[in-house]
Design a binder for these strands. Structure first.
Length: 237
DNA sequence: AAAACGATCAACCGCGCACAG
DNA sequence: CCTGTGCGCGGTTGATCGTTT
């Protein structure tokens, strides 16, 4: 046996509120106040259930409602409160006079959640890049190769600095980065990394290997592809 | 210009809690 | 205690509007 419905759904209007309905509700509440939501529609002359009237008043018609987008500071505050309180929207909303729980919930679900997801995937990507970079560097060192890099803004031969630069570059995905590898054995050829997809020029055909003296990457993304290639191609020098 | 898609937000629904009888 | 009732809360839906294809 289920719970009794709060109103007779057959005889009650649903959906969006009209201007006339809004006016009736506002007039009634301002003149009489709220004593019992169940009686409000009857007394105000509305074909709505009490629950619907309450929601309309609280979320839309209340005179003390604050309108407009939330500021960056308010968003940060919501994130902080949410981490402490979880999905307790009414509690969170109580910290923002003029804002409703429904509004905060909507903002969380549409805007903030998305922003946080994006942030964490960025962090994850940065971590993965760092890990690959460490592998790359140790592989290069194991093979007795000298590895140097330079960016437009800085030149660095320190691996630690390089890692930092690389991560930053990857995050920005826009800076020019050039990598130069000098091998102890004699290698030939210049490679344009943009053609690495499919038949790779770096690998050469079949067993015949050749190695680039210099690899110019037009973006950090190219540079990362190079690292990825190097890590996954066992027959590199 | 129109269809498809995505974002936003008002409104609804069902559940749990508080409280009166 | 037990039961019925009303309210508030959180999850979800669906209409609408703006943007992209």
């Amino acid at each position: 046996m289920g719970r009794q419905p709060c109103c007779d759904k057959e005889r009650v209007k649903r959906g969006s509120w009209t201007v006339e309905e809004d006016q009736k509700l506002v007039d009634f509440i301002l003149n009489n106040g709220i004593h019992c939501w169940r009686l409000v529609p009857k007394l105000a002359g509305l074909l709505r259930c009490g629950k619907s009237c309450r929601l309309r008043w609280i979320n839309y018609l209340r005179p003390d409602l604050k309108r407009g987008a939330l500021s960056e500071t308010e968003e940060q505050q919501i994130i902080k409160l949410h981490s402490n309180l979880g999905n307790r929207w009414s509690k969170i909303a109580s910290h923002f006079p003029g804002r409703t729980d429904n509004e905060i919930k909507n903002i969380w679900n549409t805007t903030i959640k998305k922003k946080l997801k994006l942030q964490s995937s960025d962090q994850l990507a940065a971590k993965n890049i760092e890990a690959d970079m460490k592998k790359f560097i140790s592989k290069v060192e194991d093979k007795g190769l000298v590895f140097e890099t330079s960016t437009e803004s800085s030149k660095s031969s320190s691996f630690q600095e390089l890692e930092q630069n690389w991560t930053q570059e990857m995050k920005l995905m826009q800076a020019n980065l050039s990598i130069s590898c000098s091998a102890s054995t004699s290698m030939e050829g210049n490679v344009n990394p943009s053609s690495w997809e499919g038949e790779s020029n770096v690998h050469g055909e079949s067993d015949e290997l050749f190695w680039a003296d210099t690899i110019d990457c037009s973006s950090s993304w190219d540079a990362y592809n190079f690292v990825d290639d190097f890590l996954h191609y066992e027959n590199y020098p």
